[in-house]
Design a protein around this nucleic acid. Structure first.
Lengths: 210, 210
DNA sequence: TAGATTGTTAATCGATTAACAATC
DNA sequence: TAGATTGTTAATCGATTAACAATC
């Protein structure tokens, strides 16, 4: 979990700065960012220094130029095509979400499912049968996939994606899959997020000083 | 992000051990767990030591007893009641998911929405209007909430939850909200997870040694 | 016993923080 | 100028790892 924290903070900086920009702000100090996000100002400056974001001792950092830099770091200049495997409840939610992802320079270009009842090749985001998956990835040069299949299908689907040289997988199944040299896998386990929240609250309630 | 990593690993140990148990395994070595999850065996033993899980130099660790201990640590002996605010696509997905959460000792007991069309007080998990929220929390002694409302409603909903003394919030809106002394907030930002995955892949592709 | 694994200590590593000189 | 903030260095902190004695 080395320097993933730094990129996580970078994404948080981006969100905050867009909000400030909407409020009409032009410049911001590291101290304000620190307060808003609950980190230290040293860390904000250190992060900015590492990502090559420069400020001035006069007016702090210019929001527009930080955002330009961050978007550049994130490669938002070009839209990233993503496919989604498993058009269940969760998968459908992501397909419908659409706009939000577009803001991040991300576009879900197709969904795939084994259930023939789910297929809809004419939809805004077309849903194809699994048999089309390999060809679609190759024909459209897809590098990223979101996996929202049931746990029982998880391993098999991910093996197919690896075989087709998908480079990045966002895995929502409860099976934690390790990254390989070829494919980076980001496991998101919503049950675990909830379990951890509950643990942290229970832990806090145990503390004597209330 | 101090010792949250340790509890995250604990949840991963739990999942793996249940799978091993299904396979008929009774005992396991720290080295096997380490290989399966991509961590070092020292770290597995250190984690176990810290959580009070003991093994033997003969046959390693007994799976059943690790699981009992982990479930005890996670407080799974008693079911945790959770409410969900915002019955949109994502919220519905979680409501339908049900079973998965039950396995974790978590039960979503009600949903809430401002849209009168969403209200369904007779459903398996009843959906109530927002006006019922405060009373429901008090009458049922609710400590945890999942927030899946649109970003525009996010701040307002979370303020209400805080006012009603909700102790833990799992926040899926893109607004990162800080925890307070009273309320722990776990922010899950799916756009960010995807953006980070893409960043990591692009970063890897940049490396000279391929 | 010989071999292998746990449990634990000390060393390492890296991230965060504190502090302050440089700068506007 | 005086005051305030950045950029950066050194100190701190804590988590991970390596190593090995104790143990089965």
């Amino acid at each position: 979990m080395d320097r993933q924290d730094r990129i996580k903070r970078l994404l948080n900086y981006k969100n905050l700065l867009y909000q400030l920009q909407n409020l009409g702000f032009v410049k911001v100090f590291s101290d304000n960012i620190a307060d808003a996000l609950g980190v230290s100002s040293s860390l904000v400056r250190k992060d900015f220094a590492i990502f090559g974001i420069a400020g001035s001792q006069k007016g702090g950092y210019e929001i527009a130029s930080i955002l330009a830099k961050i978007n550049n770091i994130l490669g938002k200049n070009q839209v990233q095509k993503v496919i989604l495997i498993g058009v269940g409840r969760l998968g459908t939610a992501f397909l419908q979400y659409g706009k939000g992802f577009t803001d991040e320079g991300i576009k879900i270009v197709a969904g795939f499912d084994i259930d023939p009842g789910k297929i809809d090749e004419k939809a805004a985001v077309p849903i194809y049968p699994m048999s089309n998956l390999a060809d679609f990835i190759r024909d459209n040069d897809i590098k990223f996939a979101i996996v929202t299949v049931p746990e029982s299908a998880s391993r098999q689907v991910i093996d197919i994606l690896k075989a087709e040289k998908i480079q990045g997988i966002l895995n929502f199944t409860s099976l934690k899959i390790k990254s390989t040299d070829e494919t980076i896998i980001n496991n998101v386990n919503i049950e675990h997020e909830l379990a951890r929240l509950i643990y942290n609250v229970n832990q806090k309630n145990k503390e004597p000083h209330d």
